[in-house]
Amino acid sequence: MNAEIASEIEKLAAEVLAACRKRGVMLTTAESCTGGLIAGALTAIAGSSDVMERGFVTYSNEAKIGMLRVPAEIIAGRGAVSEEVARAMAEGAVRNSNAQIGIACTGIAGPGNSSGGGSAAKPVGLVHIAVAMVQEDTLHAEMRYGDIGRAEVREATVRDALKMALRMLGA
């Protein structure tokens, strides 16, 4: 990881944890394309256990359905990489944990190939991020990073997900 990006992510993660402490809320993550990197960024900060409740890595559709209770018909109708699934993941993470705020992402990190690495409708670099919080409207963002590299898509997703969490927390 680029040192500048790593430093920015570390700073954002510390800010999210501080904002959670200030609001008195516990945090959970539900990650697909990042494979736990958001939770990893948060738990890399000493003392994070006072607000980090748990992280769900739901890479498969079955995991999204089983762990987060994402309705199978949403995945079947809209696809795993969609606004509806990202929102359902964030809301499901909150419902299926002891947290009050949930950060979720689902996307196509790449590289493009014949085994599901992007299409014209859902290209490599397409990521949906959602942040849900008890008694708040769920935030969503569709990111189109482009085919900038798998690691770079994942890093950009972590950075932008943490920024969205800060917005939800009013920080």
Rank of each mutant, 00 (worst) to 15 (best):
K163L: 11
L12N: 11
T28M: 00
A18V: 08
A109F: 00
L12H: 11
A93W: 03
L12Q: 13
G36W: 03
A80T: 11
V25F: 00
R144L: 12
K11F: 07
Y145W: 14
L37I: 01
I5D: 13
A151C: 00
A104C: 03
V127N: 03
V94G: 09
C33Y: 02
T34E: 03
M89G: 12
A18E: 15
A6Q: 15
V134E: 14
V134D: 10
L42S: 02
P111Q: 04
A39F: 04
E152P: 08
G117H: 09
L27V: 10
M168V: 12
I45K: 14
C20W: 12
R167H: 13
M26A: 12
K22V: 01
G117E: 05
R87M: 07
R95T: 07
T138L: 02
D160V: 00
A86N: 10
R78F: 12
G118P: 08
S49Q: 12
S114T: 13
V51C: 15
S119W: 04
S114N: 13
P71S: 13
L169P: 01
V153E: 03
V51Y: 09
M26W: 11
C105H: 09
A76D: 15
E155L: 12
A46P: 15
V51R: 15
G116C: 03
G92V: 01
L27H: 05
E53Q: 14
Y145V: 00
Q135V: 03
G40T: 05
L12F: 03
L162H: 06
M26P: 02
L42W: 06
K22A: 13
E10N: 15
A80V: 02
C33S: 05
M89C: 12
A44R: 11
V85E: 12
A165D: 02
T34H: 01
G125Q: 13
M143S: 10
D147R: 14
E155C: 05
E53S: 10
T58V: 15
T138Q: 09
N98L: 14
S48K: 06
G79E: 07
G24C: 08
K11H: 14
R144Q: 14
V51F: 05
G149V: 04
A39Q: 14
A19D: 05
M89W: 13
E84R: 08
V16S: 09
G40Q: 04
C20Q: 08
C20H: 06
A41V: 04
N96R: 15
E8Q: 14
C33W: 00
I103V: 13
V81G: 04
A6T: 15
A39M: 09
A19Q: 12
R154I: 07
A156G: 08
G117Q: 08
M67G: 03
V51G: 05
R154P: 01
S97N: 12
A121H: 10
G77V: 02
K11T: 15
R87F: 00
A132R: 06
M26E: 08
A161S: 15
G47W: 07
